[in-house]
């Protein structure tokens, strides 16, 4: 799982990340971790709170520096955030002082894309996420689910080949979540060469519905690396397939829960 080649999008080499506790001592969120993610793969990082999955995502995004080791994206060492790695945050990050269309255009504007071209591209992605007619709305006029659609449209419109999503749908209701799975997978499958997606979640079913591969994190280590071969499109019935149920059992065991309930 750690060999790099031309198809590698993300390579994590012996990365350790420590945090100092206020009262003294330290927490190791990532402990000498190594992994590679091929281009076009949809990978979910799953695990309980504090297992290091968000830390890993932030290090890949360049928002957090590793204490030791290094991370490469498309062969280049990560030294800070950049538009080659789009991020959808857990918190609402859509700029409230920009209209919906200005938000989607913002990354393109930063990169110097001409106004007419970026407006056309933004409209295309706005339509793709089902928000036609809301171009001039302020973010405060949108629901939580709509804001996530804007954020997703923005990172896709910006053309990032690597997309990092940090529990983006954690605060949304069941129906909205499933609508957004559709939106995300529809955009992901839009290009022939899929973009590489790293999706952090603590929801095992969400990971099984979305991912090609699930990495189970536990106490700063990768406890399991599972390929999800269930055919797409997947639905809630896909979760009942024996192979998927077996994956779920493995994940629960690694997280520390018995499949039948209670802690292991």
């Amino acid at each position: 799982m750690n060999e790099t080649n031309d198809r590698t999008a993300i390579a994590v080499h012996n990365v350790t990340r420590r945090f100092q506790r206020t009262g003294g001592g330290e927490v190791i969120a990532a402990d000498n971790m190594s992994l590679t993610i091929p281009r076009g793969e949809f990978v979910c990082l799953v695990g309980p709170s504090g297992c290091g999955k968000t830390t890993m995502l932030q290090m890949i995004a360049g928002l957090l520096a590793p204490s030791e080791g290094e991370i490469e994206v498309d062969g280049r060492k990560v030294t800070g955030p950049g538009p080659d790695r789009g991020v959808v945050f857990q918190k609402d990050s859509v700029f409230p002082w920009m209209t919906v269309i200005q938000n989607i255009e913002y990354g393109l504007k930063c990169r110097g894309v001409p106004a007419a071209e970026r407006r056309a591209l933004a409209r295309r992605y706005l339509a793709h996420v089902g928000l036609e007619g809301l171009e001039e709305s302020w973010p405060r006029e949108l629901s939580g689910g709509m804001l996530k659609r804007v954020a997703i449209a923005t990172v896709f419109a910006n053309g990032s080949r690597v997309l990092l999503l940090d529990e983006p749908f954690g605060a949304l209701d069941y129906v909205t979540k499933h609508q957004l799975y559709d939106v995300l997978l529809s955009l992901w499958s839009e290009d022939e060469q899929h973009r590489t997606v790293v999706f952090v979640t603590h929801d095992i079913d969400e990971a099984l519905l979305l991912a090609d591969r699930v990495l189970v994190f536990k106490a700063g280590h990768i406890a399991a690396d599972l390929s999800i071969d269930s055919p797409r499109p997947r639905n809630t019935e896909s979760l009942l397939q024996p192979a998927v149920v077996a994956h779920k059992r493995t994940m629960l065991e690694h997280i520390g829960l018995r499949p039948s309930g209670g802690t292991a």
Binding site: T99, H128, L131, G133, E141, Y174, D182, R234, N235, E237
Partner: peptide, 20 residues
């Protein structure tokens, strides 16, 4: 409920208007 996760466009149920 059997929610299918595939490429299907969804439209928000309401369209808030900008406050003028």
């Amino acid at each position: 409920m059997n929610a299918t996760v595939t490429a299907r466009r969804t439209t928000p149920s309401s369209s808030p208007r900008p406050v003028r």
